[in-house]
Simulated scan of single mutants.
Amino acid sequence: MPDSIPFNYPHMTGKELYYIAEAHFGGKLAGDGPFTRNCHRWIEERTGCRRALLTHSCTAALEMQSLLLRLKPGDEVIMPSYTFVSTANAVVLRGGVPVFVDIREDTLNIDERLIEDAVTPRTRAIAPVHYAGVGCAMDTIMDIANRKGLKVLEDAAQGFMATYKGKALGSIGHLGAYSFHETKNVISGEGGALLVNDPDMVLHAEIIREKGTDRSRFFRGEVDKYTWQEAGSSYLPGEIIAAFLWAQLEEAEKITACRLDLWNRYHEALAGLEARELLRRPIVPQECVHNAHMYYILLAPHIDRQKVLAGLKAAGIHAVFHYVPLHSAPAGQRYGRVHGSMKHTDDLSARLIRLPLFADLTREQQDHILSTLESLLVR
């Protein structure tokens, strides 16, 4: 690990290379081999989803969601602006229109109270994004969707191993998506998964993922040959990716517990600075069990974020801000539209700093981060 403190450092369990070698010597390197099946079964059993399908990225899983909805040009999907570009790109690539609504001041998740008013005759779906692994108000969102005849596309890229009212994030809407990018808690370098919770979409999802063919049914012996059935693409990761992921899934509980310890240590140590109104700590609603995906702070409005980031960098600490809101980006203005005020999105995004948080962060490193931050804020 470098001497300076990185924002993220990929955690290795120790079995990744062993499993990769096993895949190699087993002569199975393409997708949907034994390690992929292990990962599918683990995710299905852990989340209760109807079908889990590994993909080569969370972006791919989100694109599959739009294909499964058969989005057409002009169709609208309601989502927060404070999210990664893939949430919107998946809609835009089908000719759809992202409709941006504001976020909640407490969790930075989509404000469920604003969704219903944003629904139009063109609305097809709601795409809640579980920011920092803290669940959106899914009961309200599902109620709106059911009453309006809409689908719910969960972007749970940051939500692996987190729950809302006891249900795994990604398993509550009609479709869900996980990320296993190296910046996430459980990783495979690149990689993701589509969670299919609507049983009527399972077969279609398999077909889309297999280049539009019913190849999965052929391998299960359900058809005597596989043929081109629908428009699709190749969304399978190779078996080496799945082998790496399997080593991580075996240790997912331990990794999560380690990150939660670090998150809680940040949280306790920063209570004093919050009491002095220099920053605000993350808020986790009682119905949510988060996964310590990130620890962020919201600086008081009078504090210059760039100066704080520069001060941390000078001390060898790589802290970062997060998304530039999509509604303010050139492509967001070109392809999407805003519904209502974006005051919380604009305000909070300009004050947020993410502190280094990864499983191998030491207490000494964390103490250095905390003492440096305090010295920069207390003048």
Rank of each mutant, 00 (worst) to 15 (best):
P330A: 12
C39G: 10
F244H: 10
M201N: 07
T183Y: 09
N185T: 03
N38C: 12
D214K: 02
L377Y: 02
P10K: 03
K148E: 15
P98K: 00
A271P: 02
I241C: 11
D102W: 01
F321D: 11
F358Q: 09
G336A: 06
A314P: 00
R124M: 13
P330T: 10
A252W: 10
L361C: 05
L377D: 00
N264C: 14
L29C: 03
T47C: 14
E222R: 04
W263F: 15
Y266R: 09
G311Q: 05
L62I: 10
D198M: 03
E210D: 15
G221W: 11
T83N: 02
I172V: 08
P330C: 11
Y335H: 13
G212M: 08
M79I: 04
R215Q: 13
N264P: 11
I172W: 06
H322M: 13
A300Q: 09
A252F: 06
D367G: 02
L17S: 15
K254Q: 14
V223L: 06
L309I: 08
E239I: 04
E105D: 05
L373W: 05
P330Q: 08
R70Y: 03
R94F: 01
M201A: 12
I103V: 03
R337G: 11
M294R: 05
T163A: 07
G135D: 02
L69N: 11
Y335L: 10
E44I: 12
E22Q: 11
V320S: 10
Y235N: 09
L270P: 09
S234M: 09
A162G: 04
D102V: 00
F25D: 15
I240G: 09
G135I: 09
E206D: 09
K72D: 04
T83H: 00
T55K: 06
M161A: 10
A88E: 00
I187V: 09
H40V: 06
E76Y: 06
E230A: 15
L68F: 08
S328M: 13
L278F: 08
A252R: 10
G221R: 12
Y18V: 12
G212E: 08
E16G: 05
L361F: 12
G135V: 10
E374F: 02
G14N: 09
S81F: 02
L93S: 03
N291K: 01
A90N: 03
I241A: 14
V77R: 06
H327M: 07
A319R: 00
I207L: 11
E239C: 07
H344E: 13
Q158F: 15
M201W: 08
T123M: 13
F25R: 14
D32E: 13
E190A: 12
S216D: 15
H24P: 00
T256F: 10
R37D: 10
